[in-house]
């Protein structure tokens, strides 16, 4: 079971906030680290997978519960 090394809380932010916050935190992480992104922006459902494709980072999980979207990303 891989361990989440960092939680990026972008709840309440909207486009392009969550991705900018994620990119900033990602800069400080090591390659291979797992990051958890929490967001409430419904646009993140399409944007986080697109961002993963553009940036080459791996999107491992995408889930939704209680109005919060949760994504797990592995840093390239």
């Amino acid at each position: 079971m891989a361990v989440i090394t960092r939680t990026v809380d972008a709840r309440g932010q909207s486009c392009p906030g969550p991705l900018v916050t994620l990119a900033r935190q990602l800069k400080e992480a090591q390659a291979g680290d797992l990051l958890e992104l929490l967001a409430t922006d419904p646009g993140s459902r399409s944007d986080v997978p697109s961002w993963a494709e553009l940036s080459g980072n791996e999107l491992l999980e995408a889930a939704e519960g209680n109005g919060v979207f949760r994504y797990v990303i592995r840093k390239r």
């Binding site: 991705l19 553009l54 940036s55």
Partner: peptide, 9 residues
């Protein structure tokens, strides 16, 4: 611009 930069472009 900021989104592209956040995507590593």
């Amino acid at each position: 611009s900021t989104t592209a930069a956040a995507s590593g472009m």
